[in-house]
């Protein structure tokens, strides 16, 4: 536990430094339809206490792509999206828990510690195409299950929220 705290402490120190760097940048206002609303303990906002994003803004924040299988699809899929850690950096979030919510009222907590390089992304393209709500879109938190065996776990599967619409950041 002490080790965990220490790690958390370190992470906090880094995140504060990162937040300071990002604070200068301000989020632009969305021009298209808002696809994601982030509320809670965030360092950067663009609409009241919230940070709202249209698809273009998300795309502008970062884009990575990987191939993996998932329990919910047949065959290998290609997912493209914004790395969760990039989103957290953009919002100046270094710690805490993300409470993610979906259109279908599904809700799950994702610890900010999950947001790492090579970790989950907020996918907006599935096999190169945007996703409709009927296709679990428009946003889907996907982990690279095949690249990291640690992600072949029930907890991770439960965090793989689709039809994502909002995130509430809770600091511990």
């Amino acid at each position: 536990m002490i080790a965990v705290y220490r790690t958390c402490g370190l992470a906090l120190a880094f995140s504060i430094a990162a937040a300071n760097a990002i604070v200068a940048e301000t989020l632009p206002q969305p021009t298209g339809e808002v696809v994601l609303t982030v509320t809670g303990d965030i360092g950067v906002t663009n609409q009241g206490n919230s940070a709202v994003f249209d698809a273009a803004m998300l795309q502008a924040l970062g884009e990575v792509s990987f191939d993996t299988t998932t329990p919910w699809t047949e065959g290998t899929q290609t997912f493209t999206g914004l790395p969760l850690h990039a989103l957290m950096e953009a919002l100046g979030v270094g710690e805490g828990t993300l409470v993610a919510k979906a259109v279908n009222d599904y809700s799950i907590e994702i610890p900010v510690t999950d947001a790492v390089e090579g970790g989950p992304i907020v996918a907006y393209l599935h096999n190169g195409k945007t996703m409709s709500v009927r296709e679990k879109g428009p946003l889907w938190v996907v982990y690279p299950y095949d690249l990291n065996p640690d992600y072949q776990a029930e907890v991770i599967f439960s965090r793989s929220i689709w039809q994502l619409v909002s995130i509430e950041v809770k600091s511990n």
């Binding site: 919910w72 047949e74 259109v103 009927r134």
Partner: peptide, 19 residues
């Protein structure tokens, strides 16, 4: 429409997912 789409997505999932 949103509720329909959600249902739709669910039924598609059951119909297609390897789960």
């Amino acid at each position: 429409r949103r509720r329909y789409d959600v249902l739709y997505s669910r039924i598609r999932l059951i119909g297609e997912s390897k789960q």
